[in-house]
Design a protein around this nucleic acid. Structure first.
Lengths: 207, 207
DNA sequence: CAACTAACGGAACGGGAGTCCCGTTATGGA
DNA sequence: TCCATAACGGGACTCCCGTTCCGTTAGTTG
């Protein structure tokens, strides 16, 4: 029962050089393990071995499997793919859906996202990180819905966030609850359906 | 390295009486643990203690946490809520979406589904069971789309399964990737959007 | 370029998860 | 009803996850 007041986390006072190298090596190794064996078999000692890093270090800095996955997600959040603009809502949503589809269909990336979702259902910290991750992504794409509203494609009171989420949702649902292939047709269908619903005013804030 | 040919699993030769009682007690205890602490802290020894059952028995019959969750899902699959018929596609989809929403919003049930999803992302057996579970549910509701097609509400070539999945997807996506409330409004929005998209022919098999 | 110390790494340790052994219970069939 | 044995249960045992201790390495500051 430590009675001390909030000691500084390892890696915060001297974030440069070796500390950063260790983090990079560990996160890469963790990604490898997740892609190969999945979240259930994510053993911190194994990660340390692969990363060429002391077991103690991994336990000290990340503590648990969910903690490690959470940091991996924070790292993933850094690399942002820029949004493309096509001039129509359907075009923009299709671009978004295909981006999501390619990411989830990629063996390594798909496994990582599955692991992150699994971690989020177990651990509040991981869940918070995951929610933040998607909040950023959704916010990034929301402007395309506002532009569509400005063009008169959809009603003025359309909720942009709901539209963007609606375009991704079927892809995640398909990934998690079926063994059907996550192909481009699925992405296009999600985009088409979302665009049609948005045009019909299904995402109006009032209704 | 057993060279023996496929020994019978415990519980298959004498499924009645004590065996069934043990299974019921263990599954209930497992559900309690999942609802309280989540999948990450599902300890088989703890489950055995709560169920008033020998630790050895739990390890022998279920082996791992994912195995236990898988059996729990098979048990959940038994209880089927009958489909309601309202006479319109929007009405039927709303009924379906609200059923899903109420299930996921319920503290215990919601926790169970989260756990099952987490297990499915880790273990192939669990994934197979989960996919089967949703295949049955989707199949159960598909007729309402065919009836809508017969009434001329949606195009003839509409894929019923895709429509049903589309109605649930936003709710699961919201549950997993956001901290927004999973309320009835979200369910109604999902149903409205799906119905509108279906009417517009977004779930046509050809397109 | 020193000095200070944050952060790492090896090694030994403790505890609990998972296994094994074998005696006990009670089910399904004759 | 009785028998054969499937399935359970307790307890001892093993192994490895996670922790602790402390010496070593290398950022950071002046």
């Amino acid at each position: 029962m430590e009675s001390e007041g909030h000691e500084t986390e390892p890696g915060t006072t001297r974030p440069g050089g070796r500390t950063a190298r260790v983090r990079a090596a560990v996160l890469e190794a963790a990604g490898d393990v997740l892609a190969e064996h999945g979240f259930a078999h994510l053993d911190l000692a194994d990660v340390a071995r692969r990363a060429g890093v002391g077991k103690t270090t991994v336990y000290r800095r990340w503590g648990t499997a969910t903690g490690l996955v959470t940091d991996l997600l924070l790292d993933m959040a850094q690399q942002s793919v820029p949004r493309t603009e096509t001039g129509s809502l359907l075009g923009d949503l299709t671009a978004n859906a295909r981006l999501v589809q390619r990411t989830l269909a990629d063996p390594r990336q798909g496994a990582l996202f599955k692991a992150v979702i699994a971690a989020a259902t177990c651990d509040p910290k991981a869940a918070e990180a995951l929610h933040g991750f998607y909040a950023v992504r959704v916010k990034e794409w929301a402007p395309c819905v506002r532009q569509a509203a400005a063009r008169g494609e959809v009603p003025e009171d359309t909720d942009p966030y709901e539209v963007i989420r609606a375009a991704s949702a079927p892809l995640y649902y398909r990934l998690l609850t079926t063994d059907l292939p996550l192909d481009e047709a699925a992405a296009d269908r999600a985009a088409t359906a979302t665009a049609a619903a948005a045009r019909a005013g299904a995402f109006g804030r009032g209704a």
